[in-house]
């Protein structure tokens, strides 16, 4: 894998920096510079809160190459508070405790490894929002700021 391919996406992967459309005010993640709602140019940065809820989820047992050592792992579609859906892994949670509608928050984690000497690729995953631990828990309104460590340089070429 190539360093530049990940380096150019660090803002979105570490901080969930997307865009907001100056024409229709649609919030866009991942950033794509053309608004998917109204098709106008949209390059104004907008940082998402990193909070949302589970839209759907599943657990991967037969992992693609580069992900074998993480299997089994739970993946989800997360509906961000600001509107967009994102695809991400869940972390710090048992798959049996996950439910549709569960409040979650973004954290930065290792996404994949390319062998002993390859890149460690970091990016966002989601974990149960603070105060939510299991399927019987109720959503608790808490103000969780974007994690500080997400802004550090964490992609390491070993």
């Amino acid at each position: 894998m190539e360093v530049a391919r990940y380096w150019r996406t660090t803002q979105q992967r570490y901080r969930m920096e997307g865009e907001i459309c100056p024409t229709c005010s649609g919030k866009i993640f991942p950033p794509r510079d053309v608004c998917p709602h109204c098709q106008h140019e949209a390059k104004t940065p907008f940082t998402f809160s990193g909070r949302g809820e589970i839209f759907s989820y599943s657990t991967i047992h037969n992992a693609p190459q580069g992900f074998e050592k993480f299997a089994p792992y739970t993946v989800a579609l997360v509906r961000l508070t600001e509107g967009p859906l994102v695809t991400a892994q869940l972390t710090d949670v048992d798959e049996h405790d996950v439910y549709i509608g569960m409040p979650v928050e973004m954290v930065t984690r290792v996404l994949r490894e390319d062998g002993e000497r390859g890149l460690l690729v970091y990016g966002f995953k989601f974990r149960p929002a603070f105060g939510v631990s299991g399927s019987s828990s109720q959503a608790v309104a808490v103000d969780v700021r974007a994690p500080e460590h997400a802004q550090h340089e964490v992609m390491i070429a070993r």
């Binding site: 991942p30 037969n62 992992a63 580069g66 792992y73 695809t87 549709i100």
Partner: peptide
């Protein structure tokens, strides 16, 4: 499995470890 995942979005689906079966599982559960 990773070759089939090339039918999905490499940057925003496959890089999250999603397989093609996984994508369909998300749709089916929902």
């Amino acid at each position: 499995t990773s070759a089939l995942a090339m039918a999905a979005d490499a940057e925003y689906e496959a890089l999250q470890g999603l397989s093609f079966v996984g994508i369909n599982a998300l749709l089916m559960r929902r």
